[in-house]
């Protein structure tokens, strides 16, 4: 994979999302448009309740928009069936959640293997061990999530997001539950992925974290209110790493 060429990974036009709850309608996204190029690393910021998670779920093909278009890798998501969306989540996208979302009854290794289970991938264990190696947790393969620290759990979740070599990593507040040092380790991983040409979009509340990215989208009340490039980009260092 080549680093940052000019091709478009994500194109969003007038994206809207209305939640209906017991007759009350909440317009979480009120027509958002932007493009993200292949290989870009972007932070989405904004106050609580502004619609960041809503947007991420749409970008991650976990939810469908109420109106507007979303094209990922030149594919119009609106036209895809449920199974096709599942395939995109499986093959193209790696999603990292604030609350890790690991299966609690299974080992780190099995958690990382999970996406391979649904695409009939071979060499599951070997590939999962490689992915765990990548996040520095090979020795913890047999551990269950409740035997791992928050940072370690998030690294397992990142390994799971990586296993199918996706072209897009989406992370909704990946460092939200982590301390500064651990956050930096996680960001080092994302920067490493970015260097490999993987597009990374992450949500954060912290300017410090956004500074590790190349570009910041600002959202307020369901609308895109800012789009700027990061001028002084920080390089994350993980525990005396690269």
């Amino acid at each position: 994979m080549e680093a940052a060429d000019a091709e478009t990974m994500i194109e969003v036009k007038d994206l809207r999302k209305v939640y209906k709850m017991e007759g009350i309608e909440v317009e979480a996204l009120k027509g958002v448009s932007f493009t993200i190029a292949d290989g870009e690393m972007v932070a989405i910021m904004g106050p609580s309740g502004s619609g960041k998670s809503t947007l991420m779920n749409l970008l991650g093909c976990l939810d469908r928009p109420s109106a507007g278009t979303y094209t990922i890798d030149n594919q119009d998501v609106a036209r895809l069936s449920e199974d096709q969306l599942a395939a995109i989540r499986n093959q193209k996208i790696g999603f990292v959640f604030q609350s890790y979302n690991l299966l609690s009854r299974t080992s780190a290794l099995e958690n990382v293997e999970l996406p391979l289970v649904y695409c009939g991938g071979n060499d599951r264990t070997k590939r999962a061990l490689e992915a765990l190696d990548r996040v520095g947790l090979r020795e913890r393969a047999k551990h269950h999530p409740n035997q791992l620290s928050g940072g370690e759990q998030q690294r397992v979740a990142i390994a799971r997001a990586l296993i199918n070599r996706p072209s897009l990593i989406l992370a909704d507040e990946p460092t939200g539950n982590l301390d500064t040092k651990t956050s930096e380790e996680v960001m080092a991983l994302f920067q490493g992925l970015g260097r490999e040409g993987i597009t990374v979009v992450l949500v954060t509340h912290e300017a410090d974290i956004a500074a590790f990215t190349q570009r910041v989208l600002l959202i307020r009340d369901g609308e895109l209110v800012g789009d700027r490039l990061v001028t002084e980009r920080r390089q994350a260092v993980s525990g005396g790493g690269p």
Binding site: G60, L62, E82, D83, A86, A87, R89, N90, Q91, F95, N101, L102, L103, L114, P115, Y118, C119, R160, N164
Partner: peptide, 16 residues
Amino acid sequence: TREIGIRKAVGARRRH
């Protein structure tokens, strides 16, 4: 339910 959500999020289809 959460387990099902996680499985679907990483690509499980209905029939899975």
